[in-house]
């Protein structure tokens, strides 16, 4: 077997994913190629090291979580409750897909100038609003501009609930942190949990938002 071809098969070889004929050819190559044989030995040893890592959960993890739930910490925020219907019905998602963007403006408590949390590329205005920009399934109405059809389909399908959960968490985190560094949340590919938390004043972020506005 040609050396480079054998090397490409080593991953599947190690996992036992090769058919018998190809496995036999790789075995024959390993018998005569010390470089590949060493690669296999080292990768096996690497996996062995990974599997040797001990893990045990902290004994009080479940108790701690249940105590926090009892204290009301798992209660959805008003933002989540307001948007919950999007995740509970296909109709909700279809409606959401009809909009090019959903703009939510939340006013936060004033943030003191010179707040040490993070480095701001522009001064943050006292009492400035936080803008959370969500773009659910926009490609249905504007094909090819916000994402591919595949993304849109996935967003409306089974992957959506967890992705929305992740978005909720991100928005809640931003709101809880009152972090003026992450004022703008642009969600471009919700189905895969990809989102971009962008800071206001970041030139690249502003360009992306501008571009989104123009295409809408």
């Amino acid at each position: 077997m040609i050396h480079m071809r054998a090397r490409r098969l080593l991953g599947d070889y190690l996992e036992g994913d090769l058919d018998l004929a190809r496995r036999a050819r790789v075995d024959a190559h390993l018998a005569e190629c010390e470089e590949c044989a060493r690669e296999v030995r080292e990768l096996r040893q690497t996996v062995s090291m990974l599997r040797g890592l001990p893990v045990e959960a902290p004994p009080a993890l479940a108790d701690a979580v249940m105590a926090r739930i009892a204290a009301g910490e798992a209660r959805p925020s008003r933002w989540v409750r307001a948007t919950r219907h999007f995740g509970e019905s296909g109709g909700g998602w279809a409606l959401a897909a009809g909009f090019a963007a959903l703009l939510i403006v939340v006013t936060l408590e004033p943030v003191p100038l010179g707040d040490p949390r993070g480095d701001f590329s522009m001064p943050v205005q006292v009492g400035s609003p936080v803008v959370v920009r969500v773009q659910p399934a926009a490609s249905q109405s504007v094909p090819g501009r916000y994402g591919s059809a595949r993304h849109t389909a996935a967003f409306a399908g089974a992957a959506a609930p967890a992705a929305v959960g992740a978005l909720d968490d991100e928005v809640e985190r931003l709101l809880r942190a009152r972090d003026p560094e992450s004022l703008v949340l642009l969600m471009t590919n919700p189905s895969r949990g990809q989102r971009t938390a962008l800071r206001r004043g970041d030139a690249r972020a502003e360009r992306r938002l501008h571009s989104a506005d123009e295409t809408r």
């Binding site: 959960a57 902290p58 993890l61 701690a64 979580v65 926090r68 739930i69 910490e73 798992a74 209660r75 959805p76 989540v80 919950r84 995740g87 509970e88 089974a158 609930p161 967890a162 929305v164 959960g165 992740a166 909720d168 968490d169 949990g193």
Partner: peptide, 27 residues
């Protein structure tokens, strides 16, 4: 881990069983 389980509890109503629950948990 605590935050993840709290998040799971918060959004659990969205789990519809299209995938295994463990998949949802890992995600």
């Amino acid at each position: 881990a605590q935050e993840a389980f709290l998040s799971l509890h918060r959004h659990g109503h969205r789990f519809r069983g299209e995938a295994r629950f463990s998949t949802f948990v890992y995600r």
